[in-house]
């Protein structure tokens, strides 16, 4: 049985099928890109994988747990223990600093640890932005805070929805290097994108169209390639970063 088993997953809104009988297996430590045009159901699939939405039919099981059969509270608990989420919009609590935005994920998971949160932010190159409010951070910096927050509880699965969609080229490189590092560290990555350059970095690419899975391709990435040292380009750090 695969680490993530998606079986005949369907999500309809009235007569419209956002997802139509999707079946897909994702192995532990695999990086899968979900690609497709706008409205193809990429985000819907990601939301169902993250337990943020309920399917109309079909099931999703992660590491043997059928999350589509869980209650809301069970889903919340599962999500905080196993899943890290990164969105295209840099969702942050506006009145909390970068450090506190990471700590809040720790707090809802178990217990906030300021030092650990600070270390996580240093690892994404934000050691000098710990006490900045979101309004004082650039888009790339905000997204890196969101990545640090997704990783702080050592989530096995990282689900990212167009994480570079709102970033310039430099920040896109920084963020993608962080994803490569997560993958190298053994996290299972599911990344939604409509950018083939980004999607191509994965092990496999699942392409959706009109809610249907139309093909699965191999990507350029292999675990062996990424286990080598990765230096975060564009971040002013002399040392290599290891997440």
């Amino acid at each position: 049985m695969a680490f993530i088993e998606i079986d005949s997953l369907t999500k309809t809104y009235g007569r419209l099928a956002a997802l139509d009988r999707i079946t897909l297996q994702i192995e532990k430590g695999e990086w899968v890109s979900i690609m497709g045009p706008s409205g193809s159901g990429k985000t819907t699939l990601l939301n169902l994988l993250g337990g943020l939405d309920r399917p109309s039919s079909g099931s999703v099981s992660i590491n043997g747990s059928v999350i589509t059969g869980m209650t809301l509270n069970e889903l919340t608990q599962f999500r905080r223990e196993h899943i890290g989420l990164v969105f295209q919009q840099f969702f942050m609590i506006p009145y909390l600093t970068a450090l506190e935005n990471v700590m809040i994920a720790q707090y809802y998971h178990s217990m906030a640890d300021e030092d650990e949160a600070a270390t996580a932010l240093e690892k994404v190159g934000l050691g000098d932005r710990l006490h900045h409010l979101p309004s004082e951070l650039s888009g790339g910096e905000k997204q890196r805070v969101c990545i640090a927050r997704a990783l702080i509880n050592d989530a096995e699965i990282i689900l990212a929805d167009e994480p570079t969609g709102n970033l310039d080229a430099d920040n896109e490189t920084i963020v993608m290097n962080l994803f490569r590092r997560m993958h190298a560290e053994g996290h299972t990555l599911v990344l939604v994108t409509h950018d083939s350059t980004i999607g191509w970095k994965a092990n496999r690419i699942a392409t959706l169209e009109h809610g249907r899975l139309i093909k699965i391709d191999s990507g350029s990435s292999t675990r062996q390639e990424e286990s080598s040292e990765i230096v975060l380009e564009g971040i002013d750090r002399s040392e290599s970063l290891s997440l």
């Binding site: 993250g50 943020l52 919340t76 608990q77 999500r79 905080r80 223990e81 989420l85 969702f91 942050m92 609590i93 506006p94 809040i104 994920a105 809802y108 998971h109 927050r149």
Partner: peptide, 10 residues
């Protein structure tokens, strides 16, 4: 903010 808290496991 509430949605984000829920996403984070609140």
């Amino acid at each position: 903010e509430i949605g984000l808290m829920k996403v984070l496991g609140a």
